[in-house]
Write a protein that binds this DNA or RNA. Structure first.
Length: 350
DNA sequence: AAAACGGGGCC
DNA sequence: GGCCCAGTTTT
């Protein structure tokens, strides 16, 4: 038996029942695929269900506001995915008259849809023969064929892309694509794959060469940087001062509090901190330390301090992105995880 | 070619 | 603490 037959038979016997697999609607597939980018199935699943319930069609999606989309996206991360989806939904309404494209060449032009997602949507919705290449496929192929070219290098992407496309020829594209990804997710896992009962054990180069734990090879790149954010929690007449994050930075278009970033952990009397506060408020203000948190992102370690400003804020120079809102309004705004945590603990302690 | 972009689970 | 997850976009 060849590689493809073993993979697809394994899939028939072992696959999970995932809701998006029940549909060939390109809109539904699109929804699931964007949500699942760099995201585990278990984490994305509830988001998929909520989005589909809220927006059954691309027309419904296109009619939403960005805040609405980001609020539903809250907690999932990589928020540009949500913003790009809204852009693309509107594009589909205007350019394709509300009919979601199924052809790879049309899909690849849409914002937020890259090579992987275009292959996934086109193969699942219309049976176009485009091999998906995601983390699972890289891993399965590099192990089975014993390829040690780094999967995140240009040469690696090219090599694996050619190989995977050659393997899908003659197969049912939708089934084969699902099968190889599911095989990578459940059987050929990154850590402690179950080689003892693997149906591909016979032809597996990594197994034969005892290289399973060394493949795939990946170039490490990410430099983690450390940041210090000092949040200013301003309350007045039951309203909270919120800030819309409009800069090119993490959490773009989400809402948090006005804050001052310092180059190091800052105490209220710190010169750098104080001068920024002076600039922001036009006079000295008194801070009351509330809480400290450490927030971990893939490439940032953020030390967060929350301070209360109980008064002194009458002269606050309001930027366009800063606004007073009620607790109720704040709750309806999309916000970073760290802020949700803070708000919860304030509610518990009050 | 490299960096930026979240949050969570697992070892 | 490091790695990885149904990747894409920007620099």
């Amino acid at each position: 038996m060849n590689f493809q037959i073993i993979i697809t038979s394994w899939y028939q016997a072992n696959h999970r029942n995932l809701p998006w697999r029940a549909s060939t609607d390109p809109y539904v597939i699109w929804l699931s695929e964007i949500i699942l980018q760099q995201t585990r199935v278990e984490q994305g699943l509830p988001y998929f269900n909520r989005f589909l319930a809220a927006f059954p069609t691309v027309r419904d999606f296109a009619g939403a506001s960005e805040t609405e989309i980001l609020k539903l996206w809250q907690g999932l991360g990589y928020y540009s995915r949500g913003r790009n989806m809204l852009y693309t939904a509107r594009e589909v309404m205007e350019l394709h008259e509300g009919v979601f494209p199924v052809a790879y060449d049309a899909l690849i032009r849409l914002k937020g849809i890259g090579a992987y997602t275009a292959a996934a949507i086109s193969s699942f919705s219309s049976g176009e023969s485009r091999a998906v290449l995601d983390g699972n496929v890289f891993r399965v192929l590099s192990r089975y064929f014993g390829i040690d070219i780094p999967i995140n290098s240009t040469a690696g992407k090219s090599t694996f892309s050619t190989l995977s496309q050659s393997l899908i020829e003659g197969q049912d594209p939708a089934v084969y694509n699902q099968a190889i990804m599911e095989f990578g997710a459940l059987q050929c896992k990154p850590k402690s794959p179950n080689c003892a009962v693997c149906p591909l054990q016979d032809g597996c180069a990594a197994y034969a060469g005892n290289l399973v734990n060394h493949l795939p090879v990946k170039l490490k790149t990410v430099k983690v940087k450390t940041r210090y954010l000092n949040y200013l929690f301003c309350l007045k007449d039951g309203q909270v001062l919120v800030n819309k994050r409009i800069k090119e930075d993490i959490w773009q278009h989400l809402y948090d509090f006005p804050h001052i970033e310092t180059s190091h952990a800052a105490e209220p009397g710190d010169p750098e901190f104080s001068s920024s506060l002076q600039e922001m408020f036009g006079k000295d203000v008194v801070l009351r330390p509330l809480m400290e948190m450490k927030h971990l992102l893939t490439h940032q370690i953020i030390y967060v301090k929350f301070f209360a400003l109980d008064n002194y804020i009458t002269n606050f120079s309001m930027d366009a992105e800063v606004n007073w809102v009620s607790w109720q309004e704040l709750d309806e705004l999309p916000q970073p995880k760290i802020l949700t945590k803070f708000i919860q603990s304030v509610n518990i302690n009050s």
